[in-house]
Simulated scan of single mutants.
Amino acid sequence: MALIGNLRHRPVRRLTQLYVGLALYGIGMALMIHSDLGLNPWDVFHQGLAKLTGLSFGTVTIALGALVLLLWIPLRQRPGLGTVSNVVVIGLVVDATLALLPAGGPLGVRIALLVTGILAIAAATGLYLGAQLGPGPRDGLMTGIVARRPGWSIRLVRTVIEVTVLALGWLLGGTVGWGTVAFALAIGPLAQLFIPLFAVPEPGDAAPATGAVAPATPAC
């Protein structure tokens, strides 16, 4: 029931937002990867693991998402349809998009890919979170830890998790660059813009809430 309970209210819009958002997130990830100018912390880790194992980026994303989801069990977190879909859809879309993108490109094109990727990820975050069908496995891990450790802030847990995966990914050969910094600086304000814009009002709400907190690493 946890997976489908929210679908009783505006199911068509919620499902459309969810899957458009997840697909757009995967496209944004692929654009950032193709720019070769730096990735967000979790994707640095995904890329490092892909290089280590020889698996595709999307396969690693799916496998690690499923592993992180298992960590929800001791934290007593309950996944939604969006959570399970997140694990599968983003990985499939990122691999498909990478296969379609042409190789190489001048610096100006790569910068455009990076900027477009960050904007796509921010908009995708607003779409899939606005559907209110469950957070991504990595965001749920963060909020689950905070819920079980009341003295720990979201900022602290987010920082520890992201610094850890960033360092591990860099050691494994993931791409860290000024694009990583650009993502870190831009994603919070951009997500804060898009999340209330796409929020589906609950029955009886006059308008979507405008105080949503940006996720740790959106959609993942």
Rank of each mutant, 00 (worst) to 15 (best):
P135R: 13
P135N: 13
P135I: 00
P135K: 11
P135E: 06
G136S: 02
G136I: 07
G136R: 08
P137Q: 06
P137H: 01
P137S: 03
P137T: 01
P137I: 00
R138V: 00
R138S: 14
R138I: 00
R138Q: 14
R138M: 15
R138Y: 13
D139V: 02
D139N: 03
G140I: 02
G140F: 00
G140N: 12
G140L: 00
G140K: 09
L141C: 01
L141T: 08
L141E: 03
L141M: 05
L141G: 03
L141D: 02
M142H: 05
M142F: 10
M142P: 01
T143Q: 14
T143A: 05
T143S: 11
I145A: 01
V146Q: 01
V146H: 13
A147S: 07
A147K: 12
A147I: 04
A147P: 10
R148G: 09
R148P: 09
R148M: 14
R148T: 13
R148F: 12
R149W: 15
R149H: 15
R149C: 15
P150M: 04
P150T: 12
P150V: 05
G151Q: 12
G151D: 13
G151F: 14
G151V: 14
G151H: 15
G151T: 05
G151C: 13
G151E: 13
W152Q: 11
W152P: 12
S153K: 03
S153T: 15
S153V: 12
S153A: 02
I154E: 08
I154H: 10
R155G: 04
R155W: 10
R155M: 07
R155H: 06
R155I: 10
R155P: 05
L156F: 06
L156V: 02
L156P: 01
L156A: 06
L156N: 00
L156G: 00
V157F: 04
V157K: 13
V157A: 10
V157C: 04
R158W: 05
R158H: 03
R158I: 14
R158E: 09
R158P: 08
R158G: 09
T159L: 10
T159R: 13
T159S: 07
V160M: 04
V160K: 04
I161G: 03
I161K: 11
I161Y: 05
E162W: 06
E162N: 10
V163G: 13
V163N: 10
V163P: 03
V163E: 11
V163A: 15
T164K: 10
T164M: 01
T164V: 14
V165R: 09
V165N: 03
V165I: 05
L166S: 07
L166G: 02
A167R: 12
L168I: 07
L168Y: 00
L168V: 15
L168E: 06
L168F: 07
G169D: 03
G169R: 11
G169C: 08
G169H: 02
G169M: 06
G169L: 13
W170S: 15
W170E: 02
W170V: 12
W170Y: 06
L171I: 04
L171P: 09
L171E: 12
L171M: 11
L171C: 09
L171S: 11
